[in-house]
Structures are given as structure tokens and as C-alpha cells.
Amino acid sequence: MQFYQIISEIIFWLLVLITMGGGFLAIGARMLIHSLLGLSITFLGVAGLYIYLGSLFISLLQVLIYGGAICIVLVFGIMVGYTPRQIVETRIKSENLLLAVPTCGLGVALLYIAIRRTGWVPAAQRLADYSIERVGHTLLYDFCLGFELISLLLLVGMIGAIIVSNSQEEESGGE
């Protein structure tokens, strides 16, 4: 194994560690803002894994959309919606925790066994073209309907968000 391969493997396992640690922080933290910090760390780790999966483009979009837009929207929701006393989560009951953690561990174990026992067969002929030109061509020619539906979904989502947050204000305007 070459030297650069060893460095690459070390960085890969660091990224896996970052992803899993961020996930643990996201579900385990009591303060909501810490939980959000864990989520953004997970986003960055997954973005690094996307580079190892051969697509720098998707990795940059992951940082841009998830790490930028979605995290900002969630921070905004926490800042506007909650008073400081309400931000702290209540603890889960310990008997529920005793049930929940083994159930989740069993889920991971069963899915891992299923993954290990499956014989993954690669396609007979595989293209090796990861370029952005090819992605754009596929997006706008082969998946044109899906592209238009996503744009329609985003439009409806934006209008719906504006309407929902405005109409509630009018109804409870007397408070």
C-alpha cells in the first residue's frame, strides 16, 4: 500500500468518525442548538464521503444546500420560535431508554447482517463518466419531468410557507 493510500484511508475513517459523532451529538444533546451543531457536523462528514464516492459536485451541493440553507432555516426556527427556557429538552425516561437503545442496536445489527449476506453484483457495463456535463445532460434530458416536478414542489413549498406563517398571525392577532 502506497503512502498516499494510507493517508487517504486515515482521512476516510476520520470522515466516518465525524459523521457518526455528529449523529450521536444530534440525537443525544439536550440543548436544541447543540443538536443542530451535531447535524451540521454530520452534513460536512457526509459531504466528505461524497468526495470519496467520486462526485465533487454533489459534495459541494451538500455543503451549500444542507450545510448552508437547511441549517440556517433550522437555526432561524430555533431563534424565533422558542424562549430560552423552552429550548432545553426534557430527559427521556430511563425504562424507555432501556427499551429504545437495544431496539435500535437490533435494527442496526439486522440491517448489517442483511447487507453482509447480500451478494452485490455490479452492472455488466459501467460508464466511468462523473463529469458535471454528464450530470446536467442526464438531469435535463432523461429526468426532465422530475426536474420540473422538483421546481414545482419548491414553488408550492415557498408559497405554502409564506401563507401558513401569515394566516396564523391574522387569526391570533388579538393576543
Binding site: 467520486g54 462526485s55 459536485f57 454533489i58 451541493l61 451538500q62 444546500i65 444542507y66 440553507a69 437547511i70 432555516v73 433550522l74 452492472a123 455488466a124 457495463q125 459501467r126 460508464l127 466511468a128 463518466d129 462523473y130 454528464r134 450530470v135 445532460h137 442526464t138 438531469l139 432523461d142 429526468f143 422530475g146 422538483i150 414542489l153 419548491l154 413549498g157 415557498m158 405554502g160 410557507a161 401558513v164
Partner: peptide, 23 residues
């Protein structure tokens, strides 16, 4: 067989996630 298809699907997932967060 075609590496572009998965990237397009991931882009769709990102778009749906962004809409879902805003809503």
C-alpha cells in the same frame, strides 16, 4: 451502470429536503 443517475437522484433528495425544512 450510469454514474450520473445516482447523482441526479441525490439532487432530487436534496431539493425535497430543502422544501421539507422550509415547510
Amino acid at each position: 451502470p450510469d454514474p450520473a443517475v445516482g447523482q441526479v437522484l441525490t439532487l432530487f433528495i436534496m431539493g425535497i429536503a430543502a422544501t421539507e425544512a422550509a415547510i
